[in-house]
Design a protein around this nucleic acid. Structure first.
Lengths: 186, 186
DNA sequence: TAGTCCATGTAATCAGTTACATGATTCG
DNA sequence: CGAATCATGTAACTGATTACATGGACTA
Protein backbone atom coordinates (compact mmCIF):
# COMPACT_ATOMS: atom_id res chain seq x y z
CA UNK A 1 0.00 0.00 0.00
CA UNK A 2 2.58 2.57 -1.02
CA UNK A 3 0.83 4.50 -3.77
CA UNK A 4 -1.39 6.61 -1.48
CA UNK A 5 1.67 7.53 0.56
CA UNK A 6 3.64 8.38 -2.55
CA UNK A 7 0.83 10.74 -3.50
CA UNK A 8 0.65 12.28 -0.03
CA UNK A 9 4.40 12.91 -0.17
CA UNK A 10 4.15 14.49 -3.61
CA UNK A 11 1.25 16.70 -2.54
CA UNK A 12 3.07 17.82 0.61
CA UNK A 13 6.08 18.75 -1.45
CA UNK A 14 3.76 20.76 -3.68
CA UNK A 15 -0.05 20.83 -3.99
CA UNK A 16 -0.98 19.73 -7.50
CA UNK A 17 -3.74 18.58 -9.81
CA UNK A 18 -4.05 15.01 -11.01
CA UNK A 19 -2.30 15.66 -14.28
CA UNK A 20 0.55 17.53 -12.61
CA UNK A 21 0.99 14.59 -10.28
CA UNK A 22 1.05 12.26 -13.26
CA UNK A 23 3.86 14.32 -14.78
CA UNK A 24 5.77 14.34 -11.52
CA UNK A 25 5.40 10.56 -11.38
CA UNK A 26 7.09 10.49 -14.75
CA UNK A 27 10.02 12.42 -13.34
CA UNK A 28 11.46 12.54 -9.86
CA UNK A 29 9.04 10.44 -7.83
CA UNK A 30 8.44 7.99 -10.63
CA UNK A 31 12.10 7.03 -10.63
CA UNK A 32 11.44 4.83 -7.66
CA UNK A 33 7.66 4.65 -7.65
CA UNK A 34 5.87 4.66 -10.98
CA UNK A 35 2.14 5.19 -11.50
CA UNK A 36 -0.20 5.89 -14.39
CA UNK A 37 -2.79 8.65 -14.46
CA UNK A 38 -5.60 6.14 -13.99
CA UNK A 39 -4.07 4.89 -10.77
CA UNK A 40 -3.50 8.43 -9.58
CA UNK A 41 -7.04 9.69 -10.20
CA UNK A 42 -8.52 6.63 -8.54
CA UNK A 43 -6.27 7.03 -5.54
CA UNK A 44 -6.96 10.77 -5.28
CA UNK A 45 -10.64 9.93 -5.03
CA UNK A 46 -10.02 7.46 -2.21
CA UNK A 47 -7.73 9.82 -0.34
CA UNK A 48 -10.31 12.59 -0.56
CA UNK A 49 -13.08 10.33 0.71
CA UNK A 50 -10.83 9.24 3.57
CA UNK A 51 -10.35 12.87 4.56
CA UNK A 52 -6.60 12.87 3.96
CA UNK A 53 -6.66 15.45 1.19
CA UNK A 54 -9.13 17.95 -0.23
CA UNK A 55 -9.67 19.61 -3.57
CA UNK A 56 -9.16 23.37 -3.35
CA UNK A 57 -12.61 24.96 -3.67
CA UNK A 58 -13.56 26.12 -7.13
CA UNK A 59 -16.76 27.31 -8.82
CA UNK A 60 -16.49 25.47 -12.12
CA UNK A 61 -17.90 21.98 -12.78
CA UNK A 62 -15.95 18.81 -12.15
CA UNK A 63 -15.25 16.99 -15.39
CA UNK A 64 -12.58 18.30 -17.75
CA UNK A 65 -11.83 20.97 -15.19
CA UNK A 66 -8.53 21.19 -13.33
CA UNK A 67 -8.76 20.21 -9.67
CA UNK A 68 -5.93 21.09 -7.28
CA UNK A 69 -5.45 19.01 -4.14
CA UNK A 70 -3.77 19.76 -0.83
CA UNK A 71 -2.99 17.50 2.14
CA UNK A 72 -5.03 17.85 5.33
CA UNK A 73 -3.74 17.31 8.85
CA UNK A 74 -4.98 13.67 9.08
CA UNK A 75 -3.17 13.00 5.81
CA UNK A 76 0.11 14.31 7.14
CA UNK A 77 -0.35 12.26 10.31
CA UNK A 78 -1.07 9.14 8.29
CA UNK A 79 2.11 9.69 6.29
CA UNK A 80 4.12 10.17 9.49
CA UNK A 81 2.74 6.91 10.83
CA UNK A 82 3.55 5.09 7.60
CA UNK A 83 7.13 6.37 7.54
CA UNK A 84 7.70 4.59 10.85
CA UNK A 85 6.41 1.26 9.55
CA UNK A 86 8.52 -1.80 8.83
CA UNK A 87 8.37 -3.60 5.50
CA UNK A 88 10.35 -6.45 4.02
CA UNK A 89 12.51 -5.69 0.99
CA UNK A 90 10.60 -6.47 -2.18
CA UNK A 91 11.26 -9.78 -3.78
CA UNK A 92 12.99 -8.83 -7.00
CA UNK A 93 11.20 -9.43 -10.31
CA UNK A 94 13.45 -8.80 -13.24
CA UNK A 95 12.44 -10.16 -16.66
CA UNK A 96 15.85 -9.49 -18.20
CA UNK A 97 17.72 -11.71 -15.74
CA UNK A 98 15.01 -14.30 -16.24
CA UNK A 99 15.43 -14.09 -19.99
CA UNK A 100 19.14 -14.58 -19.59
CA UNK A 101 18.62 -17.62 -17.46
CA UNK A 102 16.13 -19.01 -19.96
CA UNK A 103 18.71 -18.41 -22.68
CA UNK A 104 21.00 -20.60 -20.64
CA UNK A 105 18.80 -23.60 -21.47
CA UNK A 106 17.45 -22.77 -24.93
CA UNK A 107 20.57 -21.00 -26.21
CA UNK A 108 21.77 -17.40 -26.35
CA UNK A 109 20.85 -15.73 -29.63
CA UNK A 110 22.08 -12.56 -31.27
CA UNK A 111 18.77 -10.85 -30.53
CA UNK A 112 19.26 -11.34 -26.79
CA UNK A 113 22.67 -9.70 -26.92
CA UNK A 114 21.06 -6.89 -28.89
CA UNK A 115 18.46 -6.55 -26.15
CA UNK A 116 21.21 -6.33 -23.53
CA UNK A 117 22.83 -3.53 -25.53
CA UNK A 118 19.52 -1.72 -25.78
CA UNK A 119 19.00 -1.88 -22.04
CA UNK A 120 22.56 -0.77 -21.49
CA UNK A 121 21.85 2.36 -23.52
CA UNK A 122 18.60 3.06 -21.67
CA UNK A 123 20.27 2.78 -18.28
CA UNK A 124 23.19 4.91 -19.41
CA UNK A 125 20.76 7.61 -20.56
CA UNK A 126 18.95 7.59 -17.26
CA UNK A 127 22.26 7.71 -15.41
CA UNK A 128 23.26 10.81 -17.36
CA UNK A 129 19.89 12.39 -16.56
CA UNK A 130 20.27 11.73 -12.83
CA UNK A 131 23.77 13.17 -12.85
CA UNK A 132 22.39 16.28 -14.46
CA UNK A 133 19.83 16.56 -11.62
CA UNK A 134 22.65 16.13 -9.16
CA UNK A 135 24.73 18.85 -10.78
CA UNK A 136 21.74 21.19 -10.74
CA UNK A 137 20.89 20.40 -7.12
CA UNK A 138 24.49 20.97 -6.02
CA UNK A 139 24.17 24.58 -7.16
CA UNK A 140 21.25 25.18 -4.81
CA UNK A 141 22.00 24.59 -1.16
CA UNK A 142 21.21 21.41 0.69
CA UNK A 143 20.92 22.67 4.20
CA UNK A 144 17.50 21.31 5.13
CA UNK A 145 16.84 17.71 6.03
CA UNK A 146 14.51 17.50 3.08
CA UNK A 147 17.31 18.46 0.67
CA UNK A 148 19.72 16.02 2.28
CA UNK A 149 17.24 13.17 2.04
CA UNK A 150 16.40 13.92 -1.59
CA UNK A 151 20.13 13.96 -2.33
CA UNK A 152 20.42 10.55 -0.71
CA UNK A 153 17.63 9.11 -2.81
CA UNK A 154 19.15 10.58 -5.95
CA UNK A 155 22.48 9.01 -5.10
CA UNK A 156 20.64 5.70 -4.74
CA UNK A 157 19.20 6.12 -8.21
CA UNK A 158 22.61 6.93 -9.65
CA UNK A 159 24.32 3.98 -8.00
CA UNK A 160 21.56 1.66 -9.14
CA UNK A 161 21.87 2.76 -12.77
CA UNK A 162 25.61 2.48 -12.44
CA UNK A 163 25.15 -1.10 -11.30
CA UNK A 164 23.06 -1.88 -14.37
CA UNK A 165 25.44 -0.29 -16.85
CA UNK A 166 28.43 -2.03 -15.31
CA UNK A 167 26.75 -5.40 -15.07
CA UNK A 168 25.34 -5.22 -18.59
CA UNK A 169 28.78 -4.30 -19.97
CA UNK A 170 30.18 -7.36 -18.25
CA UNK A 171 27.39 -9.59 -19.50
CA UNK A 172 27.74 -8.40 -23.10
CA UNK A 173 31.51 -8.87 -23.00
CA UNK A 174 31.06 -12.32 -21.54
CA UNK A 175 28.53 -13.43 -24.14
CA UNK A 176 30.24 -12.01 -27.21
CA UNK A 177 33.90 -12.28 -26.31
CA UNK A 178 35.40 -15.58 -25.19
CA UNK A 179 34.10 -19.12 -25.20
CA UNK A 180 32.72 -21.19 -28.06
CA UNK A 181 30.22 -18.46 -29.03
CA UNK A 182 31.03 -16.30 -32.01
CA UNK A 183 27.53 -15.15 -32.81
CA UNK A 184 26.26 -11.56 -33.07
CA UNK A 185 28.27 -8.43 -33.85
CA UNK A 186 28.63 -9.17 -37.55
CA UNK B 1 3.84 -12.43 -18.75
CA UNK B 2 7.07 -13.78 -17.32
CA UNK B 3 5.87 -16.32 -14.78
CA UNK B 4 5.00 -19.05 -17.30
CA UNK B 5 8.43 -18.63 -18.88
CA UNK B 6 10.13 -18.73 -15.52
CA UNK B 7 8.37 -22.05 -14.91
CA UNK B 8 9.29 -23.42 -18.34
CA UNK B 9 12.93 -22.51 -17.67
CA UNK B 10 12.86 -24.18 -14.26
CA UNK B 11 11.24 -27.32 -15.68
CA UNK B 12 13.76 -27.52 -18.52
CA UNK B 13 16.59 -27.26 -16.02
CA UNK B 14 14.97 -30.09 -14.11
CA UNK B 15 11.49 -31.69 -14.32
CA UNK B 16 9.73 -31.16 -11.00
CA UNK B 17 6.45 -31.28 -9.13
CA UNK B 18 4.60 -28.15 -8.04
CA UNK B 19 6.01 -28.19 -4.55
CA UNK B 20 9.55 -28.73 -5.76
CA UNK B 21 9.11 -25.76 -8.09
CA UNK B 22 7.86 -23.71 -5.17
CA UNK B 23 10.99 -24.53 -3.23
CA UNK B 24 13.19 -23.68 -6.19
CA UNK B 25 11.39 -20.36 -6.47
CA UNK B 26 12.44 -19.74 -2.89
CA UNK B 27 16.05 -20.30 -3.85
CA UNK B 28 17.88 -19.72 -7.09
CA UNK B 29 15.14 -18.67 -9.48
CA UNK B 30 13.25 -16.76 -6.83
CA UNK B 31 16.20 -14.43 -6.36
CA UNK B 32 15.13 -12.57 -9.47
CA UNK B 33 11.63 -13.90 -9.99
CA UNK B 34 9.55 -14.75 -6.95
CA UNK B 35 6.29 -16.71 -6.95
CA UNK B 36 4.04 -18.37 -4.39
CA UNK B 37 2.78 -21.94 -4.62
CA UNK B 38 -0.72 -20.72 -5.53
CA UNK B 39 0.62 -18.86 -8.53
CA UNK B 40 2.70 -21.84 -9.54
CA UNK B 41 -0.11 -24.40 -9.40
CA UNK B 42 -2.43 -22.09 -11.28
CA UNK B 43 0.19 -21.49 -13.96
CA UNK B 44 1.06 -25.19 -14.23
CA UNK B 45 -2.59 -25.84 -15.00
CA UNK B 46 -2.61 -23.23 -17.76
CA UNK B 47 0.67 -24.45 -19.25
CA UNK B 48 -0.63 -28.00 -19.33
CA UNK B 49 -3.88 -26.96 -20.98
CA UNK B 50 -1.86 -24.98 -23.55
CA UNK B 51 0.13 -28.11 -24.39
CA UNK B 52 3.47 -26.65 -23.28
CA UNK B 53 4.06 -29.16 -20.48
CA UNK B 54 2.60 -32.47 -19.37
CA UNK B 55 2.32 -34.34 -16.11
CA UNK B 56 4.30 -37.57 -16.20
CA UNK B 57 1.74 -40.38 -16.38
CA UNK B 58 0.81 -41.95 -13.06
CA UNK B 59 -1.89 -44.33 -11.85
CA UNK B 60 -2.82 -42.65 -8.57
CA UNK B 61 -5.54 -40.01 -8.18
CA UNK B 62 -4.87 -36.31 -8.54
CA UNK B 63 -5.39 -34.49 -5.29
CA UNK B 64 -2.77 -34.75 -2.55
CA UNK B 65 -0.69 -36.85 -4.90
CA UNK B 66 2.65 -35.70 -6.25
CA UNK B 67 2.57 -34.74 -9.94
CA UNK B 68 5.79 -34.34 -11.89
CA UNK B 69 5.84 -32.12 -14.98
CA UNK B 70 8.09 -32.04 -18.01
CA UNK B 71 8.32 -29.55 -20.88
CA UNK B 72 7.03 -30.57 -24.31
CA UNK B 73 8.47 -29.44 -27.63
CA UNK B 74 5.96 -26.58 -28.12
CA UNK B 75 6.89 -25.37 -24.63
CA UNK B 76 10.56 -25.23 -25.48
CA UNK B 77 9.76 -23.43 -28.73
CA UNK B 78 7.61 -20.91 -26.89
CA UNK B 79 10.46 -20.24 -24.46
CA UNK B 80 12.90 -19.78 -27.32
CA UNK B 81 10.54 -17.29 -28.92
CA UNK B 82 10.13 -15.40 -25.65
CA UNK B 83 13.88 -15.17 -25.08
CA UNK B 84 14.15 -13.20 -28.32
CA UNK B 85 11.49 -10.70 -27.29
CA UNK B 86 12.11 -7.09 -26.38
CA UNK B 87 10.79 -5.62 -23.14
CA UNK B 88 11.26 -2.25 -21.47
CA UNK B 89 13.14 -2.20 -18.18
CA UNK B 90 10.67 -2.35 -15.33
CA UNK B 91 9.73 0.91 -13.72
CA UNK B 92 11.26 0.62 -10.28
CA UNK B 93 8.96 0.39 -7.26
CA UNK B 94 10.86 0.63 -4.03
CA UNK B 95 8.96 1.39 -0.82
CA UNK B 96 12.10 2.08 1.18
CA UNK B 97 13.26 4.92 -1.06
CA UNK B 98 9.71 6.22 -1.03
CA UNK B 99 9.66 6.11 2.76
CA UNK B 100 12.89 8.03 2.84
CA UNK B 101 11.51 10.69 0.56
CA UNK B 102 8.37 10.90 2.67
CA UNK B 103 10.58 11.31 5.73
CA UNK B 104 12.07 14.28 3.94
CA UNK B 105 8.78 16.13 4.38
CA UNK B 106 7.41 14.77 7.65
CA UNK B 107 10.76 14.33 9.40
CA UNK B 108 13.25 11.49 9.80
CA UNK B 109 12.60 9.49 12.97
CA UNK B 110 14.76 7.04 14.87
CA UNK B 111 12.53 4.18 13.74
CA UNK B 112 13.29 4.91 10.08
CA UNK B 113 17.04 4.74 10.72
CA UNK B 114 16.41 1.48 12.54
CA UNK B 115 14.54 0.21 9.49
CA UNK B 116 17.49 1.16 7.26
CA UNK B 117 19.80 -0.83 9.54
CA UNK B 118 17.47 -3.80 9.40
CA UNK B 119 17.44 -3.75 5.61
CA UNK B 120 21.19 -3.36 5.58
CA UNK B 121 21.49 -6.57 7.60
CA UNK B 122 19.06 -8.45 5.34
CA UNK B 123 20.92 -7.43 2.20
CA UNK B 124 24.26 -8.27 3.76
CA UNK B 125 22.96 -11.74 4.65
CA UNK B 126 21.76 -12.34 1.12
CA UNK B 127 25.07 -11.10 -0.23
CA UNK B 128 26.92 -13.62 1.91
CA UNK B 129 24.59 -16.37 0.71
CA UNK B 130 25.20 -15.50 -2.94
CA UNK B 131 28.94 -15.45 -2.41
CA UNK B 132 28.68 -18.90 -0.92
CA UNK B 133 26.87 -20.07 -4.07
CA UNK B 134 29.59 -18.49 -6.15
CA UNK B 135 32.32 -20.21 -4.17
CA UNK B 136 30.54 -23.55 -4.57
CA UNK B 137 29.95 -23.05 -8.28
CA UNK B 138 33.58 -22.11 -8.86
CA UNK B 139 34.58 -25.60 -7.66
CA UNK B 140 32.48 -27.23 -10.39
CA UNK B 141 33.43 -26.29 -13.91
CA UNK B 142 31.70 -23.64 -15.94
CA UNK B 143 32.39 -24.79 -19.42
CA UNK B 144 28.88 -24.88 -20.86
CA UNK B 145 26.99 -21.82 -21.95
CA UNK B 146 24.38 -22.63 -19.36
CA UNK B 147 26.96 -22.48 -16.54
CA UNK B 148 28.42 -19.26 -17.87
CA UNK B 149 25.00 -17.60 -18.05
CA UNK B 150 24.06 -18.72 -14.57
CA UNK B 151 27.36 -17.32 -13.31
CA UNK B 152 26.50 -14.03 -14.96
CA UNK B 153 23.10 -13.86 -13.31
CA UNK B 154 24.65 -14.71 -9.95
CA UNK B 155 27.16 -11.92 -10.39
CA UNK B 156 24.25 -9.60 -11.08
CA UNK B 157 22.63 -10.65 -7.83
CA UNK B 158 25.85 -10.09 -5.92
CA UNK B 159 26.47 -6.65 -7.41
CA UNK B 160 22.89 -5.65 -6.72
CA UNK B 161 23.12 -6.64 -3.04
CA UNK B 162 26.46 -4.88 -2.89
CA UNK B 163 24.79 -1.76 -4.16
CA UNK B 164 22.18 -1.93 -1.42
CA UNK B 165 24.63 -2.53 1.39
CA UNK B 166 26.86 0.30 0.23
CA UNK B 167 24.04 2.74 -0.33
CA UNK B 168 22.35 1.92 2.97
CA UNK B 169 25.65 2.40 4.83
CA UNK B 170 25.98 5.80 3.22
CA UNK B 171 22.38 6.71 4.04
CA UNK B 172 22.69 5.66 7.68
CA UNK B 173 25.94 7.57 8.07
CA UNK B 174 24.36 10.61 6.47
CA UNK B 175 21.28 10.57 8.67
CA UNK B 176 22.97 9.86 11.98
CA UNK B 177 26.32 11.58 11.57
CA UNK B 178 26.48 15.24 10.60
CA UNK B 179 23.85 17.94 10.39
CA UNK B 180 21.39 19.14 13.00
CA UNK B 181 20.14 15.58 13.66
CA UNK B 182 21.41 13.83 16.74
CA UNK B 183 18.63 11.30 17.16
CA UNK B 184 18.93 7.52 17.32
CA UNK B 185 21.95 5.43 18.33
CA UNK B 186 21.52 5.97 22.05
C1' DT C 1 -16.00 23.99 -37.25
C1' DA C 2 -12.66 20.57 -37.05
C1' DG C 3 -8.59 19.32 -34.74
C1' DT C 4 -5.55 19.21 -30.96
C1' DC C 5 -4.31 19.42 -26.41
C1' DC C 6 -5.38 19.67 -21.48
C1' DA C 7 -7.77 17.37 -17.99
C1' DT C 8 -10.56 14.00 -15.54
C1' DG C 9 -12.53 9.95 -15.41
C1' DT C 10 -14.83 4.65 -16.25
C1' DA C 11 -14.52 -0.30 -17.41
C1' DA C 12 -12.40 -4.52 -18.20
C1' DT C 13 -8.79 -7.34 -17.49
C1' DC C 14 -4.65 -9.36 -15.58
C1' DA C 15 -1.12 -10.44 -12.18
C1' DG C 16 -0.13 -11.20 -7.49
C1' DT C 17 -1.42 -11.90 -2.54
C1' DT C 18 -3.91 -13.80 1.37
C1' DA C 19 -6.74 -17.06 3.39
C1' DC C 20 -8.58 -21.28 3.43
C1' DA C 21 -9.70 -26.36 2.00
C1' DT C 22 -8.59 -31.15 1.09
C1' DG C 23 -6.27 -35.49 0.46
C1' DA C 24 -2.18 -38.70 1.21
C1' DT C 25 1.63 -40.36 4.01
C1' DT C 26 4.41 -41.06 7.88
C1' DC C 27 5.53 -41.56 12.58
C1' DG C 28 4.66 -41.73 17.56
C1' DC D 1 -5.67 -43.43 16.02
C1' DG D 2 -4.08 -38.62 16.13
C1' DA D 3 -0.81 -35.17 14.78
C1' DA D 4 2.46 -33.47 11.68
C1' DT D 5 3.91 -32.95 7.15
C1' DC D 6 3.81 -33.32 2.21
C1' DA D 7 1.21 -32.06 -1.60
C1' DT D 8 -2.33 -29.97 -4.52
C1' DG D 9 -5.69 -27.04 -5.03
C1' DT D 10 -10.04 -22.94 -4.63
C1' DA D 11 -11.81 -18.43 -3.61
C1' DA D 12 -11.72 -13.75 -2.65
C1' DC D 13 -9.41 -9.70 -2.91
C1' DT D 14 -6.08 -6.01 -4.06
C1' DG D 15 -3.08 -3.57 -7.12
C1' DA D 16 -1.67 -2.48 -11.73
C1' DT D 17 -2.37 -2.21 -16.71
C1' DT D 18 -4.84 -1.33 -21.00
C1' DA D 19 -8.38 0.59 -23.54
C1' DC D 20 -11.73 3.72 -23.96
C1' DA D 21 -14.97 7.91 -22.81
C1' DT D 22 -16.01 12.72 -21.88
C1' DG D 23 -15.61 17.55 -21.66
C1' DG D 24 -13.40 22.23 -21.92
C1' DA D 25 -10.24 25.61 -24.17
C1' DC D 26 -7.52 27.22 -27.83
C1' DT D 27 -6.37 27.86 -32.57
C1' DA D 28 -5.94 27.15 -37.75
Amino acid sequence: MSLPHAILTALLEKPSSGLELTRRFDRSIGYFWSATHQQIYRELGKLEKAGFIRALPTDSPTRGQRKEYEVLVPGREELGRWVGEQEEPRALRDPLMLRLRAAGVVGVGADLVEELRRHRALHAARLAEYREFQRRDAARGHGTERDRVQGLVLRGGIDLELFWVTWLDGAIADLTGPGPEGDSVP
